[in-house]
Design a protein around this nucleic acid. Structure first.
Lengths: 209, 209
DNA sequence: CTTCGCCCCCTCCATTTGGGGGATCTATAG
DNA sequence: CTATAGATCCCCCAAATGGAGGGGGCGAAG
């Protein structure tokens, strides 16, 4: 029962069973990799990580519920040398910045993946970082301030079709405050109006549908 | 080289290679199914369909580029007895209605899929239809008119942060026309304002990010 | 301690939206 | 032919928006 030191033990985290199956199928055709666990939520990811101590973790950041980045940070806190590769569907995503800040070693778009996935797993396992150029550009293009929690609240309510006054009531603040939040949001997101802000917020993963 | 009549020959259409791999892995563990082709775009789907004449086609409707529903309709036109199951990520989706109108025999959310996928494949292959309740409810809740092409144009431009006057210029029509389109959009989508319309449009799959 | 960021509140005002109407014209379906 | 649906345009008007200022408190980080 000795452990082959060259065998890369992998944990996958994704809420789509089919995607996990796809990763499993891909990984298990490789001699030097082995899928040791799967998780479908942030909480489960943390549990499975504790239990298995995988060499490399492949993690979707847009998980149902609240976490994704959260569970990534927590894993990093507990296991500072955890090697996590983030998988995502969309590229233009502020989540990327957060993921990298939270300690992700690699970043991949679900779309490309084939060779890249295997290469990235091996590179990250070898201690390297793999952030695709496409994403690095994003980081330069949008060094923009992240929205504050309150601003995100407001943006979410905007997306829900609430007028400033309604937002004010819902948040128990004055309409004037809402207006200044909206102004900040538009400025930070470089949006032309609230509808545009919604589009950008969704694109960047600041809010969800 | 005789063809086993009980063997269900399957074509998968999805732009995510990993997802196709997942489906492949799942399908190939079943004795009565065989994956005979894969496509990653609408055009490719049509080609592959012509070439392979699969018994059942699993198709994602949110394909890159323009098609999805388009290629489904085209396949149905050419091969009226084609059995297509539509796969999608999100549920609240007007695409569903279109897909069903276009001749889809089954409808599945990527999320659930496991048993359901196999069951649905077999059911559809046997000539049945499989529209989950969850979706059927949508159809009742939103028997709403689909947006007209022009309205969709306008909605897309709204999402891009364009003011009515800008939309008018971009479409080379009068601002008054834009205003009436916007009014129609708000009414049809049951949206409170343009920002809300964007949210709903994205949720229903009328427009994309 | 002092600064800075976040959060809250305010006023004034031009511009834009959105909700009522209604009116042509064209193409297509019954 | 007639009805229907889509695309285009028009008016009026109340309400909301967004852009420009301003101020103040509070907590964390320097």
């Amino acid at each position: 029962m000795s452990i082959d030191p060259s065998l890369i033990r992998i944990l996958t985290v994704d809420d789509h069973p089919l995607l996990r199956k796809g990763i499993a199928a891909l990984v298990n055709t490789e001699d030097d990799m082995k899928l040791v666990a799967e998780a479908s939520s942030g909480e489960e990811a943390i549990e499975k990580f504790r239990a298995c101590r995988p060499d490399v973790t492949l993690m979707d950041i847009q998980l149902p519920g609240l976490n994704g980045i959260e569970s990534l940070s927590q894993i990093q806190r507990e296991f500072p040398d955890a090697k996590v590769i983030v998988l995502t569907t969309y590229s233009g995503d502020i989540q990327v910045v957060r993921a990298i800040k939270a300690g992700a070693r690699g970043y991949l778009l679900k779309r490309q993946v084939h060779r890249e996935l295997l290469e990235t797993i091996r590179a990250v396992h070898a201690g390297q970082r793999r952030i695709p150029q496409e994403i690095a550009v994003e980081l330069v293009d949008h060094p923009r301030d992240d929205l504050t929690p309150r601003e995100i609240d407001v943006l979410r309510l905007i997306a829900g079709g609430n007028a400033n006054k309604e937002i004010a009531d819902l948040l128990s603040i004055g309409e004037a405050s809402v207006k200044s939040y909206v102004a900040n949001i538009l400025s930070k997101l470089d949006a032309k109006d609230r509808a545009h802000a919604v589009t950008i917020g969704l694109k960047r993963g600041i809010i969800e549908l």
